[in-house]
């Protein structure tokens, strides 16, 4: 049951992503991507990570993508059609890379297809415990990085 759901979600994710990266307009791309991210969040949940799944929805699909939308709207790029889309020629290296990477990863991963152990997922309590007990320093560093990003964004964004 779970396996089937996983494959369906995987298909949704891939299709959403393909549509997103080939979309002509930025707004469309964002919408496809949000779809893809929702499916990905469900996969996270399936893999026993409810916290990550919820953050994926809240922060990624919610905040970051909205930020993209804001910027796209704010820049006022005129007619979106004026932005040139990649030609087939531009996709050549991308496709080549895709073949190489997926091929390599497929080779590396398909050595022995062992199912995951039966496991009940990681509780929020356990997650938080690890986060604040073992990785306290990482939390501090990440929070400082967010502060720097805030200052930098303010600096770049001010009108001169």
């Amino acid at each position: 049951m779970e396996t089937i759901v996983f494959y369906i979600l995987a298909a949704v994710t891939l299709v959403g992503t393909v549509l997103a990266i080939t979309a002509r307009q930025g707004v469309h791309a964002i919408v496809y991507l949000v779809t893809s991210f929702f499916a990905l969040a469900l996969i996270f949940y399936l893999l026993g990570a409810p916290m990550v799944a919820s953050f994926e929805v809240i922060i990624y699909a919610g905040a970051i993508m909205v930020l993209f939308l804001f910027v796209i709207m704010m820049l006022d790029l005129g007619k979106p059609e004026k932005i040139q889309t990649p030609k087939l020629y531009d996709w050549c290296p991308a496709i080549l890379l895709l073949v190489v990477i997926t091929g390599s990863m497929g080779v590396l991963a398909s050595r022995a297809a062992t199912p995951l152990n039966a496991f009940a997922g990681i509780s929020v309590q356990e997650f938080s415990f690890t986060l604040f007990k073992r990785y306290g320093a990482a939390i501090e560093i990440i929070s400082m990085q967010l502060l720097f990003a805030l200052v930098g964004a303010l600096y770049l964004g001010r009108r001169r």
Binding site: E2, F6, L14, G106, A109, L116, A118, F119
Partner: peptide, 17 residues
């Protein structure tokens, strides 16, 4: 939970590519 890790990684690598 019978999703093989290899399939997860293949999905991830497709996404990454």
């Amino acid at each position: 939970m019978s999703i093989p890790l290899e399939h997860v990684i293949i999905l991830a690598s497709l996404l990454f590519a």
